[in-house]
């Protein structure tokens, strides 16, 4: 009886495992399957599981339905541009917070922490007004500049920099290294792990971001991938879901690939704030 009970329990758990993983993974599979179906097959009810014939050209169709090379370029420029600025501003700020004693340090750091908690969605309106005053609306600058400094990045880097032994920095000073050099040649390499983690976080966030480009851009030249993809959804309801799903593959597959190879880093990056 006991053994039977244990077997029942094990099978029960196996069923649960399969069910839960289906709930979270199958939608992605369904996205891929739909992407390769013909339109009539998409609108078949009940739906077929596998496409009757694999329509690889759907991806091409989606790609050619708009200026996707431009979107891709813009997405890449924005994601890397933001990351570049964030590291450029974050490393010195974190170094100062971690390694110098100065008047107002606690206050300034508290302000940084507040910036960590309040999301930009809440204050998009005044920033939009600001941007339009500077004539930067509908340029890539309006997508990059507001994210030029990351409170999260400063917070993470400060944590690492605080753990570097004093003597290492002192040795570098005796070796006649400038503070700037200490920052970039000694401290930054020691924070490599965190820089990668943060880099992944920032890149994925801005690669995925929909809200900000939606607000700030309205011409194709400066739009990013998520905007382009969302426009594959026709407003009248009679959508070509196969093309729309194929387009979304372009957005999703790179991230899933990165996730596959750097799973631990990414999970760490996204859950770091909880520690």
């Amino acid at each position: 009886m006991k053994i039977m009970g244990r077997i029942a329990l094990k099978t029960g758990e196996a069923v649960m495992l399969i069910a839960v993983s289906l709930i979270f993974v199958f939608p992605f599979i369904w996205m891929a399957l739909t992407a390769f179906k013909t339109l009539p097959e998409v609108y078949q009810f009940p739906p077929t599981l596998l496409p009757e014939s694999w329509q690889i050209q759907n991806i091409v169709k989606a790609w050619e339905s708009g200026p996707f090379p431009t979107y891709l370029l813009n997405s890449t420029l924005v994601a890397f541009g933001v990351l570049f600025l964030q590291i450029l501003t974050g490393v010195p700020a974190a170094y100062a917070f971690a390694r110098y004693k100065f008047r107002g340090r606690n206050l300034l750091f508290a302000l940084t922490l507040i910036a960590l908690m309040i999301p930009p969605q809440v204050i998009f309106l005044p920033i939009y007004v600001e941007m339009s005053n500077w004539g930067l609306v509908d340029t890539l600058w309006s997508l990059i500049l507001p994210y030029g400094a990351s409170a999260f990045g400063i917070f993470l880097l400060r944590q690492v920099f605080m753990q570097v032994p004093d003597e290492v920095i002192e040795a570098a000073r005796l070796d006649q290294a400038s503070e700037w050099k200490i920052m970039w040649r000694i401290m930054a390499p020691m924070a490599k792990h965190v820089l990668v983690t943060f880099g992944l976080f920032s890149f994925i966030y801005h690669w995925n971001d929909y809200f900000w480009p939606l607000i700030m851009t309205n011409s194709n030249e400066v739009r990013t991938l998520p905007i382009g993809i969302s426009m594959l959804k026709a407003s009248d309801g009679g959508s070509e879901w196969n093309i729309a799903m194929a387009g979304n593959m372009i957005l999703v597959v790179p991230i899933l690939l990165i996730f596959f190879f750097a799973q631990r880093h990414i999970i760490q990056a996204f859950t770091y704030q909880s520690k």
């Binding site: 992605f28 369904w30 996205m31 995925n208 929909y210 979304n248 996730f259 996204f270």
Partner: peptide, 13 residues
Amino acid sequence: SPHIISLVSVSML
């Protein structure tokens, strides 16, 4: 995994 996917894709899917 859904957490790191763009909300655009999640919504359309």
